[in-house]
């Protein structure tokens, strides 16, 4: 296993479409819920322990070798609003393109053929991690980190927030990322004995509601 492959996968510049998405930060900024570094940290902590945990567990399970199509259904069941299901599939398709070019693997080809419009992004990322020779915990780390780095980067652009402050927010949350990644990997490990329902189903209703509303905004900087 190459630990450096994790750096490639988790790099914010990995060309899989993430740069055009704010992870719910754009509507939160517009509503005044994110207005500075402190409120960005609260937002990120909430997203990490809900949507971030669910996505990290799906990725860890995919990296552990669970059936990606079952995981894709599980992701649908854990994503109540259509706007976010669509975003997850669109980003999954983009992740698939980047992953197949980066770590070619018949398992990726098979999922691409079964879900030509895209599987949920965390499932594809988990499978990509597996193709790269990474462990389930690595996949969980990549997704958990991405669940906060996306909104932080977007907030720098939306609020002209000091980029050093935004990066410090990510550093403050490092222990939370450790915790969520370990929880996610542990849940993924239980899938083998307890089935797919062992995966967490935490939700953040406000993220869901604002994502659905944001999808209908006529003018916006980010796709989600």
């Amino acid at each position: 296993m190459s630990r450096a492959a994790l750096l490639v996968l988790a790099d914010g510049r990995f060309p899989a479409g993430g740069h055009a998405h704010s992870g719910g930060a754009e509507p939160a900024v517009a509503a005044g819920r994110i207005k500075d570094a402190a409120t960005l940290e609260r937002f990120c902590r909430g997203r990490l322990h809900t949507a971030g945990l669910v996505a990290a567990a799906l990725a860890a399970a995919a990296a552990a070798g669970c059936d990606p199509l079952l995981l894709d259904d599980a992701a649908d069941a854990r994503t109540p609003v259509p706007a976010l299901r669509q975003v997850a599939r669109r980003l999954g398709r983009q992740m698939m393109r980047a992953a197949r070019a980066t770590w070619p693997d018949p398992a990726l080809d098979a999922l691409a053929a079964a879900r030509p419009r895209g599987a949920h992004q965390p499932v594809v990322l988990g499978l990509a991690a597996r193709s790269a020779g990474l462990a389930p915990l690595d996949a969980a780390y990549a997704v958990a980190y991405e669940s906060i780095s996306g909104p932080a980067t977007a907030t720098v652009r939306l609020l002209s927030l000091d980029p050093f402050d935004a990066t410090a927010v990510l550093a403050h949350l490092a222990a939370d990322v450790d915790l969520v990644a370990r929880q996610a990997a542990a849940a993924a490990e239980r899938v083998a004995t307890e089935g797919i329902d062992a995966l967490p189903a935490a939700s953040a209703p406000l993220l869901d509601i604002t994502a659905q509303a944001h999808a209908a905004w006529p003018v916006r900087l980010f796709a989600s």
């Binding site: 510049r13 479409g17 740069h19 998405h21 983009q94 393109r97 980010f222 796709a223």
Partner: peptide, 20 residues
């Protein structure tokens, strides 16, 4: 294609959405 405030990224650094 929506570009997340960075149109040059979508045509140069991360072309995945445009290719799709």
């Amino acid at each position: 294609v929506e570009t997340g405030a960075c149109p040059h990224t979508a045509i140069r650094d991360d072309i995945s959405a445009n290719l799709e």
